[in-house]
Simulated scan of single mutants.
Amino acid sequence: MKGIYQITNKQNGKKYIGSSTNVFKRWEQHVTDLHYGLHHSHLLQKDWKKYSLNDFTFEVLEYVDDKKDLLKIEQMWIDGEEMPNLYNVLTSTTMHSISAPS
């Protein structure tokens, strides 16, 4: 299922917004990367270490029919949030992230 998803920290309300052609498989990849300390968002990784899996929720924000619309719609969801409330390390889906641990 193609769509836009959100990972939310229930303790502090911070969110990670992403898109995928298979949102549920992408969630599994996030969990794996976070478990092994390999996640590209050092902000999310830091809080994942501080809290636990049970402190995070995963939800699909919107299903998308056409793959070519994923990034545009993801950007609209990101633009609707205040950056300090996001784990996303970049504000634009047109840029690729290279995040370093802090």
Rank of each mutant, 00 (worst) to 15 (best):
Y87C: 05
L44H: 12
N9Y: 12
W77V: 01
G37P: 06
K50R: 15
D79H: 05
I7D: 05
Q45C: 02
N54L: 12
F58T: 01
Y5Q: 03
S99N: 08
L44W: 09
E81G: 06
S20R: 01
Q29N: 13
E28W: 07
Q75Y: 07
S41A: 06
L86A: 09
W48V: 10
L90T: 11
Q6L: 09
N12M: 03
D69V: 08
E28G: 09
F24S: 10
N12I: 03
E74C: 00
L61K: 01
L71S: 13
K2Y: 11
S97M: 07
T94G: 04
H30R: 11
S92C: 09
L61R: 04
F58D: 05
T57H: 07
K15H: 14
G13M: 06
K14T: 11
K68V: 05
E28S: 14
H30A: 12
Y36E: 15
G80N: 11
L44D: 07
I4H: 05
L86R: 02
T32S: 12
K67G: 01
F58C: 03
T93S: 04
L53Q: 14
Y63K: 12
N54I: 09
M76P: 01
D47Q: 13
D47M: 02
G18K: 00
I78S: 06
L43H: 11
D79T: 05
Q6R: 14
F56P: 01
K46L: 09
H42Q: 13
K68Q: 13
W27C: 03
M1V: 07
I98N: 15
K15G: 07
H35I: 06
K10H: 11
E74P: 09
Y87I: 04
Q45F: 02
K10Q: 14
W48H: 11
L71T: 10
S20E: 09
Y87N: 12
K68S: 10
N22G: 09
L53F: 12
W77Y: 15
M95Q: 14
V31A: 10
N85W: 06
D66T: 07
F58Q: 04
D69Y: 10
G80T: 06
N22S: 14
L86W: 05
M83D: 10
Y87K: 00
H30I: 05
Y51G: 10
T94P: 00
